[in-house]
Every structure is written in C-alpha cells, then in structure tokens.
Amino acid sequence: EVTIKANLIFANGSTQTAEFKGTFEKATSEAYAYADTSKKDNGEYTVDVADKGYTLNIKFAG
C-alpha cells in the first residue's frame, strides 16, 4: 500500500491537501478522479508530478 498526496491549488490562492491510499495505480486514479470532480467548480487543472509520482500538485485555472 502506498499513499499519494494531492496538493490542490485553487485560482484564489487557497490550498487543500488530500491523501489517497491503495496500490500506486488505485491511489493515483482516485486522486485524478477527485480533481475531475473538483473541476466543475474550479475550472480546468494542470498537474505537476513530484516525488516520483507520490505527490501531485494540482493547480486549477479558476
């Protein structure tokens, strides 16, 4: 089991951190699914992958 950390960075400057656990593939998939659901309210996003994929910096356009 691994933990994927997602740092969500919103257009207004606020941030949120979420953690997803499971296999690398499952946790990563859940992090992207979470970003997709947040996209409806926060606009399109880009992802900067860090820490060999264990940290995702997800920046929303607003």
Rank of each mutant, 00 (worst) to 15 (best):
E1H: 12
E1C: 14
E1W: 14
V2Y: 05
V2M: 05
V2C: 11
T3W: 06
T3D: 02
I4T: 00
I4L: 06
K5R: 14
K5N: 06
K5S: 07
K5Y: 09
K5I: 15
A6S: 04
A6P: 00
N7P: 00
N7E: 05
L8F: 14
L8Y: 13
I9K: 07
I9V: 10
I9N: 06
I9A: 05
I9W: 09
F10T: 03
F10I: 02
F10M: 08
A11P: 14
A11S: 12
A11F: 09
A11R: 09
N12V: 04
N12H: 06
N12G: 07
N12W: 06
G13W: 04
G13R: 05
G13L: 06
S14D: 13
S14E: 13
S14T: 15
S14C: 15
S14I: 14
S14L: 14
T15K: 12
T15H: 10
T15C: 13
Q16G: 07
Q16R: 12
Q16W: 10
T17Q: 11
T17S: 13
T17H: 12
T17K: 09
T17V: 11
A18C: 15
A18Q: 13
A18D: 04
A18G: 06
E19P: 02
E19C: 15
F20T: 00
F20I: 03
F20P: 01
F20D: 00
K21I: 12
K21W: 10
K21M: 09
K21T: 14
G22K: 00
G22V: 02
G22R: 00
G22T: 01
G22C: 02
G22H: 02
G22W: 01
T23S: 11
T23A: 07
T23M: 07
T23E: 09
T23Y: 06
T23K: 06
F24A: 05
F24W: 12
F24Q: 05
F24T: 04
F24N: 03
E25G: 07
E25S: 09
E25W: 07
K26E: 13
K26C: 12
K26M: 12
A27Y: 00
A27L: 01
A27E: 00
A27C: 06
T28D: 01
T28M: 14
T28P: 00
T28E: 06
T28G: 03
T28A: 06
T28I: 14
S29H: 11
S29A: 15
S29G: 10
S29N: 12
S29L: 14
E30D: 14
E30M: 13
E30T: 06
E30Q: 12
A31V: 07
A31R: 00
A31W: 02
Y32F: 13
Y32N: 03
Y32H: 06
A33T: 08
A33G: 08
A33E: 11
A33V: 08
A33D: 09
Y34D: 02
Y34P: 01
A35T: 02
A35G: 03
A35F: 12
A35N: 01
A35K: 00
A35S: 04
D36C: 09
D36E: 14
D36F: 05
D36Y: 05
D36R: 04
T37E: 15
T37L: 15
S38I: 15
S38T: 12
S38A: 15
S38M: 15
S38F: 15
S38L: 15
S38Y: 15
K39Q: 08
K39M: 12
K40V: 12
K40Q: 13
K40G: 12
K40E: 12
K40C: 12
K40I: 13
K40R: 12
D41T: 13
D41V: 13
N42V: 06
N42I: 05
N42D: 05
G43H: 04
G43S: 05
E44N: 11
E44G: 09
E44A: 11
E44Q: 10
Y45K: 02
Y45P: 02
Y45Q: 00
T46N: 07
T46Q: 09
T46F: 09
V47N: 01
V47D: 02
V47F: 04
D48G: 08
D48N: 11
D48A: 11
D48P: 00
D48V: 13
D48K: 09
V49A: 07
V49I: 14
V49M: 08
V49G: 04
A50N: 08
A50T: 13
A50D: 10
A50V: 13
D51M: 03
K52T: 08
K52G: 15
K52D: 15
K52W: 12
K52A: 14
G53Q: 03
Y54A: 05
Y54L: 14
Y54T: 07
T55L: 09
L56Q: 01
L56D: 02
N57P: 00
N57H: 08
N57Q: 06
N57R: 04
N57K: 04
N57G: 03
I58S: 01
I58N: 00
I58D: 01
I58R: 00
K59L: 12
K59H: 14
K59E: 07
F60Q: 01
F60K: 00
F60T: 00
F60V: 02
F60P: 00
A61E: 13
A61F: 14
A61Q: 13
A61V: 14
G62V: 09
G62H: 08
G62A: 09
G62Y: 08
G62D: 10
G62T: 09
G62F: 08
G62P: 10
